Simulated assay, not measured.
Amino acid sequence: MTVRQRPSAPGAGRAPGADGGTGAERGRAVRPAAAHTTDGRTARDVVFYRLGKKFVDHERSIPEDVRSVLYYTLAIGHHTGVIDCLEPRLATSRVVFSDVLAALGTGEAADKLRGIERFGEIELKKEHVPLLKPAVLAALEGCGTVPEPGTAAAGLVVAADVPSWLEEFLFLLDEVQCEPAVYAMGRRVS
């Protein structure tokens, strides 16, 4: 799978043919990079994001008299006033993702991931790892692939087929399981 380049030249974001575009631009609408949507009719890819960092913008946005409430909610585990920064970690086309779902078969793990098609996005937390990991390992075994430990790639990985997606997803699940505050979010995007 090739990573689509977003045009930055004049005419970017207009309908195909509006500026006489050639090649890959002809025949499809070109969207600005910030115009991602989870719309099932226009979404072309599935991307999993991993929590990269969290922060509280307490200097500008939170008045002094409210800060104690904010820190109390943080102490008891609520996310009031916390900004989560999610970084793209694993991407593939919806066609490959559909093949992944088929490889997982039926069951709770596949149903959890099917939530992306049903709702547009899902959240994966530590409690989902024991459900998903055995199903991913079984699907990898069915593909004839055994992942090597500790070979996760850094940054965004674009998976071109089912085995490579399953391997990288397994590494993502390990990251969610091992880091105390890490979670992942899967979305269909345009």
Rank of each mutant, 00 (worst) to 15 (best):
V3F: 04
R4F: 04
Q5P: 08
G11W: 00
G11Q: 02
A12P: 05
A12G: 11
A15P: 08
A15S: 11
P16S: 06
D19I: 10
D19P: 05
D19F: 10
T22G: 08
G23H: 09
E25S: 03
E25V: 03
E25F: 00
E25H: 01
R26A: 13
R26Q: 15
R26I: 13
G27Y: 15
R28H: 05
V30I: 03
A34W: 15
H36N: 06
T38I: 11
G40R: 10
G40P: 07
A43P: 01
V47D: 00
Y49W: 02
Y49M: 00
R50Q: 02
R50V: 01
R50A: 00
K54Y: 06
F55L: 06
V56M: 00
V56G: 03
D57F: 10
S61R: 13
P63S: 09
D65H: 03
D65K: 11
S68P: 09
Y71H: 11
Y72A: 01
T73C: 09
L74W: 04
L74V: 02
I76Q: 12
H79Y: 09
T80H: 09
G81V: 01
D84E: 14
D84Y: 05
E87D: 02
P88K: 04
L90R: 01
L90M: 00
A91L: 01
R94L: 01
V96E: 02
A103M: 14
A103K: 09
T106V: 05
T106R: 14
A110K: 07
A110R: 12
I116L: 12
E117A: 13
E117M: 10
G120P: 10
E121M: 09
E123T: 15
E127C: 12
V129F: 15
V129S: 08
P130K: 12
L131T: 14
L132K: 07
L132W: 08
P134L: 07
A135C: 08
V136A: 10
A138G: 12
L140R: 09
L140V: 02
G142R: 12
C143N: 05
P147G: 02
P149S: 11
P149A: 11
A153G: 14
G155L: 00
G155H: 01
V158G: 05
V158A: 12
V162Q: 04
W165G: 12
W165V: 14
L166G: 13
L166H: 12
E167I: 13
L170C: 09
L170E: 08
L170F: 07
L173I: 12
V176H: 10
M185W: 09
V189K: 06
